[in-house]
Design a protein around this nucleic acid. Structure first.
Lengths: 261, 261
DNA sequence: CGTCTAGTTGAATCGCATCAACAAGCGTGG
DNA sequence: CCACGCTTGTTGATGCGATTCAACTAGACG
C-alpha cells in the first residue's frame, strides 16, 4: 500500500522502553537530561564546560490525549518537547477551544505563563510524548553561570513571536486553500529540520483541530485538502500527506485572499 | 459640537516644547530617562537604589508618518512608547502590508528582532511620538545589577504573547462586527489604564489599517462601525468613538462566528 | 458485529469581498 | 477666500467563498 511507507517520526528507544504507561498522577520522572542536551535544543553553542555540570533536567511522560498542563495552573516550568506531538489551546468565555499552536521535538510550551505566574494556555499530548521540564528559576540561574544561555530563552520567545506574526498574516489575508497549503509547508520544513521526510508525513491532529488553528471549519479543511489533492499538488489519504509539488504549494501561498482562480 | 469634547491623550509638555521637528536623519535625542522611569514602564517594583543610578536612556522623536524602524534593519534596541501612537507591520512576498499591532504609551516595539539580530517587523508613527530606546545589552547588564529587572523583558514578551493569542482567537473565530467590537473594547481598556476616558476616544489609524489588523476590508470595518452605531452600542463620527453600552459590546464578543442575529 | 469517532461530500444559506459611486475633510496654490 | 486635487470614509449592488446542515463512508475498538 502507498501509505505503508509513510515516514513516522520514531520515539527514542529510551521512551519506547516504557511499556506500561503511568497514570497522570504518577508520571514517570526518572529520565533526566544534562545541560549539554538542553543547550543543543535551545541553540546555545556547545561548550566543554557543560561537561563539568551534573545538573539534570527532569522529564515527564504523557500518553496521547493526556493533559500536560491546564490554563490557570500555576506556572513553574517551560516544557520542551523531546519526542512526540502536542497542541496548545485556550478557551474563550463559553468554553469553545481555540488551538494556539502545535508543537514537536525541540519546540517549547508554556512561555505565556511567565508573566502572570500561571499558565494562560493549556497543552495536550497528541501522541505519546516525552517532555523535558525547564524550571524558569533554574534557567535564570544557569544564565548567570553560563553567559551563552543568557539570550537563549529570549531567542526562543522571539522566534515564537515571529512565527505567530506570520500566522496572523495568513489568518488575516489568505483564503482557505492557501491557509491549508501554508500549514502543510510549515509542517514540511519542521519535519525536514528534524531529519524526517519533508514530502511524506502524517498529520497528528484531527480536521477539527486543524480548522480551529486555521480559522476554518473542519469541512472547509477537508474540502481544501481534497482540492489540493485534485490539483495534484499533494496526495491525501486520511492523515497521510504526500507533497507532490512543493513549489506549486509555495506559489499558492503568495496569493491574496480570494484572488485564486 | 458633540465631538469637540473628545478626550485627546495629550503629549507631555517636554514633547510639545519641540516646535520645529527634525528630519529623519537627525532625530532629536537630548531627552533622557532614568532607570526609575524605565522601571515604572516595565512594571519593575520601584526601589530607592535606582536613585543612585545616573545611567540614562536616550529618547527619539518622530512625526506622524515617520518610520521608526524598518523590517530587516539591524536590531539594537527595544523601543518603548513614551507618548504618541505607532503601528507595527510586516510585508508579505508581494509588498502588501499587514498590521501586526498598534502601540501606545507604555507599549514596546521591536522585541521580535532579538532572535535574528535584525527587525522582523517595521514600525511607523501614527502621531507625534516620543520613544525611549532600550538597548538590549544595557537591559541585560541592568538585570545583573538589579535583580528586580531580571524578569522584566520576559514579562513584557510573555504579556505580548498572551495578547497575540487573544487576537488569534478573535481572528480565527469571530465575525466582522464582533472583531471591531473587541478591538474597541481593547482600545478602551488601554486608554483607561493610561488615565484617559474609557468611553470617549479617537482612533488613530485609518479604516484601512484597522481592516488589515482585523483581517477585514476597510469597507467591512466601516460597515461594522455603522452597524454598531445603528444598534446604539457606540457612536461613530469619523475617528471619534463614544462607547454607549460597554456591556452590550462585551456581550457581542462572547458570541461565535456567524451566530449573531 | 455494532457502536463511535473521524472524515468526506453535497446543497442551501449567509457573510464578506469586490467594484463602484459618492461625500467629507484637508492641504495647496491661485 | 475659494477652487482643486487628494486622501479618507460611507454606502449600495453583486458575486463568491466559507459556514451550516445533513447524509454518508471508513476506521477504530471493545
Amino acid at each position: 500500500m502507498l501509505y505503508s511507507t509513510l515516514a513516522e517520526p520514531t520515539y527514542s528507544k529510551q521512551v519506547l522502553a516504557f511499556e506500561a504507561y503511568p497514570e497522570p498522577e504518577d508520571k514517570q520522572t526518572w529520565l533526566r537530561s544534562s545541560i549539554a542536551e538542553i543547550a543543543k535544543y535551545l541553540h546555545v553553542p556547545d561548550s566543554p564546560i557543560f561537561q563539568h555540570d551534573h545538573d539534570l533536567f527532569q522529564h515527564m511522560h504523557y500518553k496521547a490525549g493526556q493533559t500536560i498542563f491546564s490554563a490557570g495552573e500555576r506556572f513553574n516550568s517551560i516544557y520542551l518537547v523531546n519526542s512526540g506531538f502536542t497542541k496548545s489551546l485556550i478557551w474563550d468565555e463559553f468554553g469553545n477551544e481555540q488551538i494556539v499552536n502545535f508543537q514537536m521535538k525541540g519546540d517549547v510550551l508554556g512561555v505565556d505563563g511567565i508573566h502572570a505566574g500561571h499558565h494562560h494556555s493549556g497543552a495536550i499530548a497528541l501522541s505519546e510524548c516525552d517532555m523535558i521540564l525547564l524550571p524558569l528559576k533554574k534557567l535564570t540561574m544557569i544564565s548567570k553561570t553560563y553567559n551563552q544561555f543568557e539570550k537563549a530563552v529570549l531567542n526562543l520567545i522571539s522566534m515564537e513571536m515571529i512565527f505567530q506574526q506570520n500566522r496572523l498574516c495568513i489568518l488575516a489575508a489568505k483564503n482557505a486553500e492557501v491557509r491549508v497549503a501554508a500549514f502543510l509547508l510549515n509542517l514540511s520544513t519542521r519535519f525536514f529540520r528534524l531529519g524526517y521526510s519533508k514530502s511524506i508525513f502524517n498529520l497528528r491532529m484531527t480536521r477539527n483541530d486543524l480548522g480551529s488553528y486555521l480559522g476554518l471549519t473542519l469541512e472547509t479543511v477537508s474540502r481544501s485538502l481534497s482540492m489540493l489533492d485534485d490539483s495534484g499538488l499533494i496526495q491525501v489519504n486520511h492523515r497521510g500527506i504526500i507533497i507532490r509539488d512543493e513549489s506549486g504549494l509555495l506559489n499558492l501561498t503568495s496569493v491574496k485572499k480570494g484572488s485564486l482562480k
